[in-house]
Every structure is written in C-alpha cells, then in structure tokens.
Amino acid sequence: MLLRYFIRRLLWMIPFLFVVSIVVFALIQAPPGDFLTTYVAKMAESNEGIDQATLERMREQYGLDRSLPVQYWKWISGLAVGDFGQSFEWNQSAWSVIKSRLPLTLVLMLSTFIFAWGVALPIGIYSAVRKYTVGDYVVTFFGFLGLATPNFLLALVVLYLGVRFFGVHMGGLFSDEYEGEPWSLAKVIDLYKHLWIGILVLGTAILASLIRIMRANLLDELSKPYVTTARAKGMAEWKLILKYPVRIALNPFISIIGIYFPALISGAVVTAVVLGYPTLGPLMLQSLLAQDMHLAGGILMIMCSLTVVGMLISDILLALLDPRVRYD
C-alpha cells in the first residue's frame, strides 16, 4: 500500500519536471539574442576578436542553428547527463561552477528547514493550547513581525547590529583561517558559527507562518469530539493533547512543506546575496545580470528540482503519519 503510494507520487514528478524544464528553457531563450551574441559582445569588450569560422563552429556545436525543439532536446538531454552547457562568465562548464556551490546551498536550506519546522512545532502548540494568554500574544506579535519583514531587510539589520555593537562583519560563511582549507570538524563548527545568522534570517519568515498554521490547525482540532473522548477516559491534559489533536494537526503542518520549500529556496537567494554566502543564489543573480543564461538556467532548473525534494519529504512524512492517506 505504502510502496504503491510512493511510486505514484514519484511518477507524478516526471510530468512536473518536464513542464518545469520547458519553463526554464523558455526563460533561457527569452532575452534577445542568443548565447553567442552575448559571447561576441563580451569578447569585443575585452578586445579579443573572434573569427567567423570559430563562430560558425560554435554555433553548430551548440546547435544554435537548429529549431527550438531540437535545441530544447539537446539542452534537456545534456542536463540528464550533467551537461549544463558552458558558462562564458567563468569560462568553464556551468556544472562545475554549480557543483562547487551546491553543497553549501543544501546545507543552508536543510538546516533552515529543520530549524523552522523544529521551532515552529512547540511554539505553535504552546500558542494554541494557551490561547489568549500573554505568551500567545507575544508569539503572535513576533509572528506578524516576522511575516512582515522581508528577508533581506532582516539580514541587513543583523549585519548592521553586528557592526554597530560587536564591531564584526557577520556575513560570509568562513573565518579567514578556514577559507580554502580542507574540511574538518573544526571547519564545520566554524561554518555553523557563521551560518546560524543565515538560518535565523531565512527561517524567521517561514517560522512565523508555520506557527500561525500550526496554531490555527491545533485550535480547530482542540474542539473536536475525540479530544473530549480522550479527556473522558481520564488522560492527563498534556498527554492527550500531544497524542491526539497535535498528531492530527501535524497533517497540514507537514503537507505545507511542499509549498514552503520553494519559499525557502526563494528566501535563500536574497538572504545569501545580502550576507555574501557562496551559495547558488548570488551566483544566479550574478549570471542573470551578466546574461550568462546557461549557468542561470542550470541553477534555476536545480532550484526547481529541489522543490520536488520538498514535495517528496512532505508526501513521505504524511503517508507515515496518516493512515487515511495510505489507504486513499
């Protein structure tokens, strides 16, 4: 039952990724001119002429003389084997540029994910069970504030406070002594000494809405008859709340992962730009500004695919949690 459910969910990813790839390809194609015109302009800028023959050869190599469907096919089949095309900005394959930045991106996102969901759960429960108490109002207030503050603004404020009150620049991911060093436990610890700011900044906005969702759902569940049943059995209040309504209120809390994972990816772009993290976000912005479309497209494709990871996580957790999903 469970297995069939997963297979069904996995199969649904295929058309999803297909449509996404078309969207991304369209975006790559959208700017006027193609990769080579930009390239030529770039070369001319740096006074390096390029002869017509080389240009023709490249045009053929990249299939730019073919029809769009053929170009799409070339691009997508390249992606499948890890060939993301050439980044002229970096003068190397786009994949190798992406590859160097991908792990830290994933670390940032997964850490934030765990932070946001892990913190939102107890606070949301507290806020719902202690409805209309001082604690609840405090949580609600900060929740709204977090919701209303754009990521980059919060990041800027943190940076400002760092410089103003501690005299340190809180951006970046590594202290100077670890920059470029091989990985070690000390370096990981150093990484998290910097990363927590990013996690905090990125997590706050999502945390705020997660708390609201958890609170609202739990409030709904707390008034359901099965809670009264459990109470009538003689269960202790906290125990019954955790076993029954919380368990059921977790459903929407989990299924929202699929929708908030993309928000996390979005937020990570802006936050990383402000905090100067060597992750994919700033790279993408840079490549878009430079019209390095193969690189930008590749990153965009990876980011969109990451949302699939979010959907999968939420589906798996949901199926484990709720028998009704499995039996559906």
Binding site: F16, V19, V20, V23, V24, L27, A30, P31, P32, G258, I259, F261, P262, A263, I265, S266, G267, V269, V270, G281, M284, L285, L288, L289, Q291, A296, G297, I299, L300, M303, C304, L306, T307, V308, G310, M311
Partner: peptide, 20 residues
C-alpha cells in the same frame, strides 16, 4: 499546483532579467 511549487524569486529574477 505547479506554480505554487516553483520558487518565486528565482523565477521572477529570470523573468525580470529577460526584460530589455
């Protein structure tokens, strides 16, 4: 569902970058 599961800011950036 598809639009909801796309990361908005990267898509916006790409779209905005495409504006001449």
């Amino acid at each position: 569902e598809l639009v909801l599961s796309l990361p908005t800011i990267p898509i916006w950036l790409a779209l905005a970058a495409a504006l001449p």
